[in-house]
Design a binder for these strands. Structure first.
Lengths: 359, 359
DNA sequence: TTGTATGCGTTATCAT
DNA sequence: ATGATAACGCATACAA
């Protein structure tokens, strides 16, 4: 910061060029002088000025992460996955989270110009294809998470919501359930729509001849509670309820408890996400696990590839599979999991291949 | 990126200096030409190159966050708090999380040189006073979180673990409990040590004449489970158990359940942190809440102050109070909280003033 | 092998 | 009010 390459050069009695060469290990310097330069640099605690270097190198060794204002496990695990893998590639992470709406996001995107070599964007309402078209320089390597963009300049990586829901419905059907109800997420949410589509498709294929009840929710616990009550109020009670995320499932659970309906005895219940809470409610919630950190890791790998070999995996679409996590709330396998110390030993079913890409 | 200030200048038929002046709104340009320049810039989608600008400005408008590899709510909420407040100050966030040990941290710190105006560091084993002394340029504004550094070049912001545990013990004592046991965290953890100290002090003052049982844990659920069993195996059973964090309390809960000991009927149980899970276990766990996002916000405010007015709050020590959250697991107030739909309505006690500073 | 000189994109200083 | 030009700290093509 305060000590520059010039200081090192003067102290080591060489030119700045030699210092640069020595410290970057590009050769062209006597081992002796290199040694001397390194010593001086260490003594002076010289650290190259990142901005100055990237100005000429055209490389910042930094990637950006742009995501909406969301709390909880998803955010932290995703960042964790990205950061961990970024370090592997020698990259650093500039985070811009907590933005609400397109304006915030656009400002954040602008601020990242010239500070990042690439960017991972978690789609959200307002931050969609049209938004990116106008706010994203096309030369900037980009990985889109959770996007419904078919193809474009950016690589796309999605959770396989469809396959996840499908596989869970299959599990429920295999347990003998036919009247399976579904609690949807918000209509403007990409994951929510895919999950609902997966559910409908699975029911049509696996439990034909029925028309499943579908009630609306918004991913909140409160909406799940309401949905649970609504499902109980009907003429015939569902045999199983599939909530589009875990928080709504927890809401349902509460509604069922209050109504004196036993889970899974009277009604089976499953969710989606496998948030930490899922293991700790009573009974432990069967759900579809999203390996979030792995999602982040894969996104980072994709991005690193895009950076190192421009155009390599651009316009490709990838999918990360989910796991079916069977605990007690859906019955069938229950009792088996009454293990000591809350250890986890659910049956785990890979619903999709690890990372399926298609360009 | 690809379109520079020169392009705008050429297109607008002015010099680069005028473009710079117009876009930065420093005056010295005719409203007419400013208007023209702005239009051209917008049309060309010109965005200033951050690195180039900060090279001469000496300001990156970015702050760094350095933290160990931790998952879960604490990380995400802290980042959230920091990022949200950073935006308020017009600052961006360069995150380097997920580092294990001093070497990783040192590398991350080096990489941040010249890319940040200041830095927030979450202390961890290995990243302590000595570490900072050698790895941190003293000119860089720094806020230390969770540090036992008394005073130095950096501002320090801590959670008031001591007051939090103290207040919770007071609550337990007010419920009539006298044989209160404690499950410690890892010895090398700053929070853990402070919490234990708070517990010991509180017991000495509030429940004199007893020597409380203290068993070791490491903040993990498994260690809590073991501790719970150990506490049950003693000659006399404690009336209450205070786990140094919630995950260990959850482990205790499991151990008690297996042993057929009712909570809070036979034994009271409390934790620390108020992780999301705490509300959802059965019975809901009373705990000490750490307002993590607020911690991040305060850290950011401190740092912004340090950046804008060098030396202003340096070498100051601040403390953020905790809240006592009374749910059902500690008895006494229980029954009152059997409200519908898992809504939260705990009695909330501010254990410390909002932000107590001392320089 | 080493040093000199140029340029990266921007702001700041000095002319005009 | 506007333009030419010198920094900022570094890497690199070229000269020696």
């Amino acid at each position: 910061m305060t000590v520059t390459i010039k200081d090192v050069a003067r102290e080591a009695k060489v030119s700045v060029a030699s210092v640069s060469r020595a410290l970057n290990g590009v050769g062209g310097v006597t081992p002796a002088t290199e040694q001397r330069i390194r010593e001086v640099a260490a003594r002076l605690r010289y650290v190259p000025h990142g901005a100055a270097r990237s100005l000429i190198t055209k490389r910042t060794h930094t990637v950006g992460a742009l995501m909406p204002d969301l709390h909880g496990e998803f955010f932290s695990e995703l960042i964790r996955g990205i950061d961990l893998e970024a370090r592997t590639h020698g990259l650093h992470l500039l985070v811009s989270s907590s933005h609400n709406g397109a304006d915030d996001a656009a400002a954040a995107l602008r601020a990242m110009q010239g500070r990042v070599d690439g960017i991972v964007i978690l789609s959200s309402p307002g931050v969609d294809a049209a938004f990116l078209k106008t706010n994203l320089p096309e030369s900037l390597p980009t990985v889109l998470l959770n996007s419904d963009m078919k193809a474009g300049a950016a690589a796309v990586l999605n959770i396989d919501n469809f396959a996840g829901t499908y596989a869970m419905v299959r599990h429920l059907a295999s347990l003998g359930h036919r009247r399976i109800a579904f609690v949807t997420g918000p209509k403007n949410n990409f994951d929510a729509r895919q999950r609902e589509a997966g559910f409908r498709a699975a029911m049509t294929r696996l439990v034909p001849g029925t028309s499943p009840r579908i009630v609306s929710g918004d991913f909140s616990e409160a909406s799940g509670y309401l949905a649970g009550r609504e499902l109980l109020s009907g003429k015939v009670r569902p045999q199983a309820v599939f909530a589009a995320n875990d928080m709504m499932a927890v809401g349902c659970l509460q509604a069922f408890k209050e109504a004196g309906i036993a889970v899974p005895g009277d009604i089976a219940l499953v969710g989606f996400d496998d948030i930490p809470i899922a293991r700790y409610v009573t009974p432990p919630l069967s759900t579809v696990r999203v390996r979030i950190a792995e999602l982040g890791k894969n996104a980072m790998d994709l991005l690193a590839d895009l950076i190192n070999r421009p155009g390599s995996s651009a316009a490709s679409v990838h999918t990360l599979g989910c796991d079916i996590v069977v605990r007690e709330s859906c019955g069938g396998a229950s009792g088996r999991n009454l293990n000591h110390h809350n250890q986890e030993n659910p049956s785990r079913v890979e619903s999709t291949t690890k990372l399926e890409g298609s360009s």
